[in-house]
Design a protein around this nucleic acid. Structure first.
Lengths: 228, 228
DNA sequence: TCTCCCCAGATTGGTGACCAATGCACCAAT
DNA sequence: ATTGGTGCATTGGTCACCAATCTGGGGAGA
């Protein structure tokens, strides 16, 4: 499927953005593996866009840290190290933790968004599509961040979420771990939501921290296994 | 001064990056005012670079929120609203607050960085150059963020810092306010540093929060004055 | 006179061909 | 084995060009 075909159906976005989206999905689905060198000329012919447009798309992905760019050498799909995971999750735990501390003075709208996100996660788990589950999971956590009520922090967390989704998709073992236990996953999230409902910022903060920490350990373990 | 001349002296960076740097400085210094439309063709001839390169530079600045891009219409220098300032400072207070909470288990290296940043701020204030003072001030706060020990959060705060520097430079009244009281500015920062030295995370957190809040009010006041 | 529509000009989005700058692998000389 | 070219592949950047889209102003119609 070329980018060209997509444009015909829906042209809501620049060509570079659409190409970036396609590449992002391909990388997420494992069709392009970490470490792969993405050559501008190759992608240009493959997707029937100019080399310049490819450059722009790669630039966007580089900003999301999905790929790394090296001047005059090329851009390669990021290979996660244990340090990457730890840094990523330190950021996540920090933000979610402080967001949860706002549970005792959360707005009605924010709570409603949390409820909504939880319902989506619930039906996604019922559906059973792992890709969907991970997406909805992260959307729930994005909703938690929303209680900080800062657009800039929301955007920042969205970037982080992309990276986490990438890390999860690459490390299949951890990925399965997160989707093979639907009941526990749901229960953990419901516990967090419940703390928000009660306005119990103390336990909300502890729960999100522990939740994130669990995944961090899983991913770090998976990445050191993959490195060897 | 064209970008071309800069390249001859030191070519550490792409042309687009250098152009972005030049434009950023011009905007910061008020040579290009908020609301100004930046036309690609104009900049292209003015700085003797291709339109394509101009596009890239503007794209970078847009990501820093210094300019806003509208498809097929152009990019204009951002005009700060009160809402922007509040969002910006909510992010800042959140991050600095949580960073200060780590004061009780800060690493020796981080404390040393704080001390170093404070010394720089001290001599900048003694020097009396407002531009330098603001830069060193923000570097001190960047050092505070460092105690979270997350590269991604450091980068995020660096973006925020650029915006704050921009906001300060635009709103001259608030700008002067911050540099016309050298003794108080120094004292406030020293109090924060002292809390870190003592490992008193409680007061460190309160101090940075209050410090940021003071500036927030100043800037909001300045921006509503400018809007009328 | 007012409203709506359409069109021409201006500006950005995107392409393709081209050259320059840089990095890398290979090879020769010491 | 190390050093210092040398050529090739790839990216950085320019230029000329066309397509897509926004904007403003001038009719056509009520």
């Amino acid at each position: 499927m070329t980018v060209f075909e997509r444009r015909s159906t829906l042209s809501r976005g620049t060509t570079a953005e659409e190409l970036a989206a396609v590449l992002r999905e391909m990388i997420m689905r494992g069709e392009i593996k970490p470490g792969t060198l993405l050559r501008e000329e190759t992608l240009s012919t493959q997707f029937e866009v100019s080399r310049r447009t490819v450059k722009e798309a790669l630039s966007k992905l580089a900003h999301e840290r999905i790929v790394r760019h090296y001047r005059h050498k090329g851009t390669q799909v990021t290979k996660f190290t244990a340090a990457d995971i730890r840094d990523l999750y330190r950021a996540r735990k920090t933000l979610e933790g402080v967001a949860a501390q706002a549970a005792d003075h959360i707005s009605a709208i924010q709570l409603q968004r949390l409820e909504h996100a939880f319902e989506n996660l619930k039906s996604a788990i019922a559906g059973g599509d792992p890709v969907d589950v991970v997406a909805r999971d992260l959307e729930f956590h994005q909703a938690i961040i929303g209680s900080i009520e800062s657009e800039r922090i929301d955007d920042f967390f969205a970037d982080i979420a992309v990276e986490m989704r990438f890390a999860l998709s690459v490390l299949e073992s951890a990925y399965n771990e997160s989707t093979d236990r639907p009941d526990e996953t749901l229960a953990e999230h419901e516990a967090i939501l419940d703390a928000f409902r009660r306005g119990d910022s103390e336990s909300a903060s502890n729960l999100v921290y522990a939740h994130a920490h669990t995944y961090e350990l899983l991913l770090v373990e998976a990445v050191v296994a993959a490195e060897s």
